[in-house]
Design a protein around this nucleic acid. Structure first.
Length: 211
DNA sequence: AAAAAGTGCAACCGCAACCTA
DNA sequence: TTAGGTTGCGGTTGCACTTTT
């Protein structure tokens, strides 16, 4: 499939960048499998897509992360786990790769030492949501009430008009408020349900659903 | 000044989800 | 229903650059 012999790998040259930019300006994004051919590039479609999304796309913000951006990343990571694309969706101009790199090289160490400190002081652990498949179970497309066996439905998510900061605060208090109550929803625990509710909210609001 | 170690970031890889015939 | 093709994601790697010894 992907294994075209002689496909170029490694760092992109300015000439290649130029070809890719011109191709996407002419034909638009999407149809990545056709891009190498249309652009006249000896690259695989994955490489072209990645280069465009992480480097060439207009409005990409480069350079250091501002303090408020770092704060957002930390809080969103608490809510969403390693779902970098969802986190990136809340940080205009930042790419998922950028945020992932930033987390892995800067924040992970800080957070690990912070967590160790918490364990040492026997503080309750932060509510980290495990990474999940990017598409939610079909059961969630049904009204929430139908899925619930023995727990009340969660409150409605915050209205879209509130600020991002308030959105996160809302979800943080939602998670804290549910602590200790472990009912089942379609065989999942409440925390699974919380996780999916968060992902559904952030995922859909960011992308409007996939495709 | 040179070697070693550490760091940051761009790019690659594998896989699951999704689409379509 | 299913199989093949496409897309998008997160994890990982490789390498250039910087800092330390």
């Amino acid at each position: 499939m992907e294994g075209h012999l002689g496909v170029r790998k490694g760092a992109w040259t300015p000439e290649e960048d130029d070809l890719l930019k011109k191709c996407i300006q002419r034909h638009g994004e999407g149809k990545w499998h056709q891009v190498p051919f249309k652009a006249g590039l000896n690259r695989c479609r994955k490489s072209c897509r990645l280069r465009w999304l992480n480097y060439l796309k207009p409005n990409i913000k480069r350079g250091e992360f501002a303090e408020d951006e770092v704060d957002l990343i930390i809080r969103l990571h608490k809510l969403l786990g390693n779902r970098w694309s969802l986190i990136a969706g809340r940080l205009p101009g930042r790419t998922s790769n950028d945020i992932k790199n930033f987390w892995n090289s800067h924040l992970r160490k800080t957070m690990v030492s912070h967590t160790e400190e918490q364990i040492h002081q026997r503080k309750p652990n932060i509510n980290v949501i495990k990474p999940r498949p990017r598409v939610l179970s079909r059961s969630l497309t049904r009204p929430l009430e139908e899925n619930i066996c023995n727990t009340p439905p969660p409150p409605q998510p915050p209205p879209l008009s509130v600020s991002l900061d308030n959105e996160i605060l809302w979800w943080e208090s939602f998670l804290n408020g549910e602590e200790g109550e472990q009912g089942t929803i379609d065989g999942s625990t409440t925390s699974d349900f919380q996780d999916e509710a968060i992902a559904k909210y952030f995922g859909e609001e960011t992308f409007g659903g996939r495709r």
